[in-house]
Amino acid sequence: MKEIVVISGKGGTGKTSITASFSILGTKDLVAVDCDVDAADMHILLKPDLGESQDFYSGEVASIDQTKCIACDKCAKVCRFNAIDREGVRYSVNTLNCEGCGYCARVCPVGAITNISQKVGVWYMSNTRGGFSMVHAKLGIGADNSGKLVAHVKNQAKALARRQGKKYVLVDGSPGIGCPVVSSLSGANYVVLVTEPTVSGIHDLKRVYELVKNFKIHAGCIVNKADINPEITEQIIVYLRAEGIDLLARLPYEENFTKAMVAGQTIVEFDNGMLKKNLTDTWQRVCRIVDEQQGES
């Protein structure tokens, strides 16, 4: 079983539309995972039935028992996150600032502080109209630890793919270069980078690829909206060659991406022309590259 992760660094490059299309093309061979738990959108295109669901707890927040507190101020003195609010002798925790380190509870002389475990989100194991399973999650508002939720949904998807005897786990990854994307990348066999030829697109591509290199994962790249700026498209292609990244496809700036989304479909279901053909060829190429690789995930 191999893990294919689609990421983009920059948002709005078409990552989710492309990943959802791949999942429809590879339907019988894969389990799909939405690891963009902050702004999960793949379900809008794949419309999974909300199957089995479970709450996900991670991290803690301090809570002060007013009946025990003696207002000694020790908790406020040790807190590095400005998370203890004081109103006269009434001490309380600012839950937005609290990092859940538990230092205050350890120094409280009367045991007035407890750490409460936080529900950070819900994850689902669902079925899609394509006949394949999809693992996805909804992160709670302002929740911490999205990296841990990402790692969790990915592990669930891998276990499911093994049980179902599927060849691939296809991951819609998270944006940025921080903990959620690190969790998305860890364990991947192949990375598909989706970019666009804009000053920010190439800038973010280079940054996120530096991170991919740390993981020593082989990568390919799709240049979406390639005709919007042919000059930067050329710069991207030169960069890909220099770094040994496969150029998987050059897609045109197409409002069908948006139209398919409005229709609640993937592009390969909505479009019957070049875009569908391009994406089908690209997916087959990714499969060939991954199939030829040694080793399992």
Binding site: D38, A39, L96, L139, G142, D144, S146, P175
Partner: peptide, 14 residues
């Protein structure tokens, strides 16, 4: 601000 709804956005917006 950064995108999303998790801790970096909260820090940026609070």
């Amino acid at each position: 601000a950064p995108p999303g709804t998790s801790c970096p956005v909260i820090e940026a917006a609070k």
